[in-house]
Amino acid sequence: MVPLSWYLVLAFMLIGLGGYGMMVKRNLIRILIGAEIMGNGVMIALVAIALYSPVFSFTGQGLIILVISVAAAHTALAMVLMLMYNRRYGSVDLGKPVEMEGQ
């Protein structure tokens, strides 16, 4: 059996990678991809803990179903906000409002 710590290390590596993408990128779509990668890391950690725990077997899976559902809804909402941002500023550049303020 794979040790739980392996899953957790991988999960935290994905969370770190997603966080790096969210901090470094200016493209809103890329930032959304970073957030989704972080979400995937969290889900791996949750399912692993659920499997290794005698209590959380179904609770963990139920929690993951909640997380996946909410992720789908928040992605749709993020897309709409991105479209609105693009209409207002003519770009998906995160730094655009600051640039426009400076002009």
Binding site: V24, K25, R26, N27, R30, G90, S91, V92, D93, G95
Partner: peptide, 13 residues
Amino acid sequence: LLPRAQDSTLETF
């Protein structure tokens, strides 16, 4: 759909 989403200058700060 977003016309300027593929602008490579947006990739980094």
